[in-house]
Write a protein that binds this DNA or RNA. Structure first.
Length: 589
RNA sequence: GGGCUCAUAGCUCAGCGGAUAGAGCAACGGCCUUCUAAGCCGUGGGUCGGGGGUUCGAUUCCCUCUGGGCUCACCA
C-alpha cells in the first residue's frame, strides 16, 4: 500500500510509487521517472501515465512497443493500489483501484479536518507579507482591493504551511501631503464633517487645497513649512497628523473587519523616517553613494538598472530610502525568511532597485525579498482616477454586492419556504456578498490587469464565490439531515468506503487528493488562484455527483454511509480552501 | 528608444515540453412530486497574434516581427 499522509504531506504520493515500480523495470532513476509521470487529459485514459517516447532512442525501439512490453511486466497484483496498467500508443497508462483510492482520500480528509493540506514545513521561518498599504486621508477604493485580498490570502497560505507570519500594513502616512492637509484643514476644515466621515472630508479639503494653490502658490510653501514642523515633531502639527491618521485607520478597519482581514504591524512611512539617516551613512561608508545633479544616488549599472535616488537634491528622503531602511529594520526585528511585497506591477522597477542597492551593500537578505506584483484594476474604457472622481469605494462595492445577494436570499427563501431569520439573512448576505468580491480577485493569475465591471462582479452564476459557498451550504444541508437521522461522516467503515467506485465519486476524490498540492503550489508561486481553481473544481465535481446520485436515499446502507462520508470530506475541503482564500463559508444560503 | 509584461472560443480566462487545446459567461435546447435550480445535462463556437528555429513531439522553449499595457531620477 502506498504510504499515506492525511495532512497533505508528501506521503500519499502515487506518482512516486509508480515511478518506483517503473524504476525496477527500466533501471532508470525513480526521481527522473517521477518527473515524467503525468496525469492524462481524460480520466478514461487512466489516473497516471508514463510517456515512453524519450526511451525510444536509447532502447532503439518504437514507443508503442516499449509501452506494450512494460505493460506486460505489470501482472495482476503488481501493486495493491493499481487496478490495471494498459499500453495505449506510446503511453503506459495506470488505473488506480478506485474504491481503495476514494476511500483512503475520504478517510484522511475527514481526519485532517481544518488542517487539510497543512504542514509544519515553515516552522521557524518567518514570512513577512506587506499588503494593502493605503494612503492615509485618501479613499480606500477598488484599486486597493487587489493587494488587500491577495495579500490576505498569501498570509493565510504561508501560515497553513507552518510559517510564522507577520502581516504588515505599510501605511502611506507621511510626506508633504500632510503639510497640505494641515494647512487646508486650518483654513477650510469642518470639524463635524471630519468626525462623521473623515476620509471624505479630508479628500474634500485636499482637492480644495489643489484648486486654491493654482492661484496662490504661497499655499505650497506653507504646506512644506508645516511638514518640516511635523518632522520636528511640533505638538500642533503632530496632534493634527495623529488625528488624521487615527480617523483614517478607523475607517480602514471597518473594511478590513468586513473582509476578515487583520494586520500585526502598521508601521508605515512615518515609522521608518528616523531610520533613514543611518542607512545613508551606511551607504556612504561603503562608498556606494554618489552625487548626481544635486541628488545622492547609487549607481546600478552592473545590475543593468537605472540609478537609485536615495536623497533628493534638496536633501529630503524618498521612498527608495524608506524602503531600504524598512528591509534592514525588518531583518533585525523579525529575521525574516521571506519579505514579501504585495504591490502593483508598476512598482516593479522600484523594488528591483531597492533590492539591488541592498545586494551591493552586501546584505544577503536582499535575495529573500520578493515583489509579488499584480495587474491594475481599471474600467473597460478608462483608468481608475482619484482626481476625476472616478473612484468606486471598496465599501460601496461590498455594499452593492451584499445588497444583490440579499435580494437573491429573500427570493429563494420565499421560493423554498425556508425559515431564515432577519439576522441570519443579513449575516449570510454580508458573507456571500463580500466573498463574491474577494473571489473575483483571486480567480485568475495576478499578473493580468483586471477590468472592473459591475455586471461581472455581481454575476453569481457559474464559477464564482457564491457558487463555491452555495455548494458548501448544500452539502452541509445534507449532513444536517443525516445527523438528524443519527448518521455522521465518521460512521463509514473501510468496507463502506469501498463503495465509492462511481465516476462522479472518483472525480470528487481525485480533486480532494490534489488539495494539499494546490495549497503548496499556490504558496510557492504566490498565486492563490491555483487553490481557487482546486476549490472550484471540487465544488463542480460535487455538484455533478449531487445531481446524479442520491446521498441520503442511496441504494443501500453501506453506500449511504460512504456517500455521507464523501459529502463530509467535501465540506472540509471547501471550508478550508475558502478560508485560505480569506472567504467565509455559510451553513445556509 | 531601453526594460518588464501580455496576446488562446463572441467576452473573461485556465492550460508542469506530450494524447482529440479546456472552463465559466453569453447563445440555443432540456431537467425542480425526490438531499437548496446561486444547481445539473446537452448543442454550437478555435489558422492558440504572424513568421522562423530547437525537438520523436511546441499553445508551452529560443529568435524575430506586429499589436496592447506598465515603466525608464528627485510622487509613492
Amino acid at each position: 500500500m502506498v504510504s499515506w499522509d492525511g495532512n497533505g504531506g508528501d506521503g500519499m504520493d502515487f506518482r512516486k510509487s509508480i515511478a518506483e515500480l517503473l524504476s525496477t523495470r527500466t533501471g532508470l532513476a525513480a526521481d527522473v521517472l517521477a518527473a515524467s509521470v503525468e496525469v492524462p487529459p481524460d480520466p478514461a485514459l487512466g489516473d497516471y501515465a508514463f510517456p515512453c517516447f524519450p526511451l525510444a532512442k536509447t532502447l532503439r525501439k518504437a514507443p508503442p512497443a516499449i509501452a506494450a512490453e512494460l505493460a506486460a511486466g505489470f501482472s495482476d497484483g503488481a501493486a495493491p493500489f493499481l487496478a490495471r496498467v494498459q499500453a495505449v500508443g506510446g503511453y503506459l497508462n495506470f488505473f488506480l483501484d478506485r474504491a481503495v483510492f476514494a476511500g483512503a482520500v475520504v478517510r484522511d480528509v475527514l481526519a485532517a479536518g481544518e488542517r487539510l493540506g497543512a504542514t509544519d514545513e515553515g516552522a521557524g521561518r518567518t514570512a513577512i507579507v506587506e499588503y494593502s498599504s493605503p494612503n492615509i486621508a485618501k479613499p480606500f477604493h477598488v484599486g486597493h482591493a487587489f493587494t488587500t485580498i491577495l495579500g490576505n490570502s498569501l498570509a493565510r497560505l504561508y501560515a497553513h504551511l507552518g510559517h510564522p507570519v507577520v502581516r504588515m500594513n505599510h501605511l502611506g502616512d507621511y510626506g508633504t501631503q500632510f503639510g497640505k492637509l494641515i494647512v487646508a484643514f486650518e483654513k477650510w476644515g469642518d470639524e463635524a464633517a471630519l468626525e462623521k466621515d473623515a476620509i471624505r472630508e479630508l479628500l474634500r479639503i485636499y482637492v480644495k487645497f489643489h484648486d486654491e494653490a493654482k492661484d496662490d502658490p504661497s499655499l505650497e510653501d506653507a504646506a512644506r513649512a508645516r511638514f518640516v514642523r511635523l518632522e520636528e515633531r511640533r505638538p500642533e502639527e503632530l496632534a493634527l497628523w495623529q488625528r488624521f491618521r487615527d480617523l483614517s485607520l478607523a475607517e480602514f478597519a471597518r473594511v478590513y473587519d468586513r473582509m476578515g482581514i487583520a494586520f500585526d504591524d502598521y508601521s508605515g512611512e512615518s515609522f521608518y523616517s528616523d531610520k533613514i539617516p543611518a542607512v545613508v551613512e551606511m551607504l556612504q561608508a561603503k562608498g556606494l553613494l554618489e552625487e548626481s545633479e544635486g541628488a545622492q544616488i547609487v549607481r546600478l549599472d552592473d545590475e543593468k538598472l537605472p540609478p537609485c535616488i536615495v536623497l533628493k537634491s534638496d536633501g529630503a528622503t524618498i521612498y527608495a530610502s524608506r524602503d531600504i531602511a524598512a528591509v534592514l529594520w525588518r531583518k533585525e526585528r523579525y529575521g525574516f525568511w521571506k519579505n514579501i511585497y504585495v504591490v502593483g506591477n508598476p512598482q516593479s522597477l522600484h523594488f528591483q532597485q531597492v533590492f539591488a542597492v541592498l545586494r551591493k551593500a552586501g546584505y544577503a537578505c536582499a535575495d529573500d525579498c520578493v515583489h509579488v506584483g499584480f495587474g491594475l484594476v481599471k474600467f473597460a474604457d478608462r483608468k481608475l482616477s482619484t482626481r476625476a472622481g472616478d473612484v468606486i469605494f471598496l465599501d460601496e462595492l461590498l455594499d452593492e454586492s451584499v445588497a444583490k445577494t440579499r435580494e437573491i436570499i429573500d427570493r429563494n427563501a420565499e421560493l423554498r419556504g425556508t425559515d431564515m431569520s432577519e439576522a441570519e439573512r443579513a449575516d449570510v448576505a454580508e458573507k456571500v456578498g463580500i466573498g463574491a468580491v474577494q473571489y473575483a480577485f483571486l480567480r485568475n493569475g495576478r499578473d493580468r490587469d483586471l477590468v472592473f465591471s459591475w455586471e461581472e462582479m455581481l454575476d453569481f452564476d457559474g464559477e464564482t464565490g457564491p457558487y463555491a459557498m452555495y455548494t458548501y451550504a448544500r452539502a452541509r444541508s445534507v449532513l444536517r439531515k443525516a445527523e438528524a437521522e443519527g448518521a455522521a461522516p465518521a460512521d463509514a467503515s473501510d468496507a463502506d468506503l469501498a463503495r465509492l467506485g462511481g465516476d462522479e465519486e472518483a472525480a470528487v476524490a481525485r480533486l480532494l487528493y490534489g488539495f494539499g498540492d494546490a495549497v503548496r503550489r499556490a504558496a510557492d508561486a504566490n498565486e492563490p488562484y491555483l487553490l481557487t481553481r482546486q476549490v472550484a473544481g471540487i465544488a463542480r465535481a460535487f455538484n455533478k455527483f449531487y445531481n446524479n446520485q442520491s446521498i441520503l436515499s442511496a441504494p443501500d446502507p453501506e453506500t449511504r454511509r460512504a456517500r455521507i462520508a464523501l459529502t463530509g470530506a467535501v465540506c472540509v475541503a471547501l471550508k478550508t480552501g475558502l478560508g485560505l482564500l480569506g472567504i467565509a463559508a455559510v451553513e445556509r444560503m
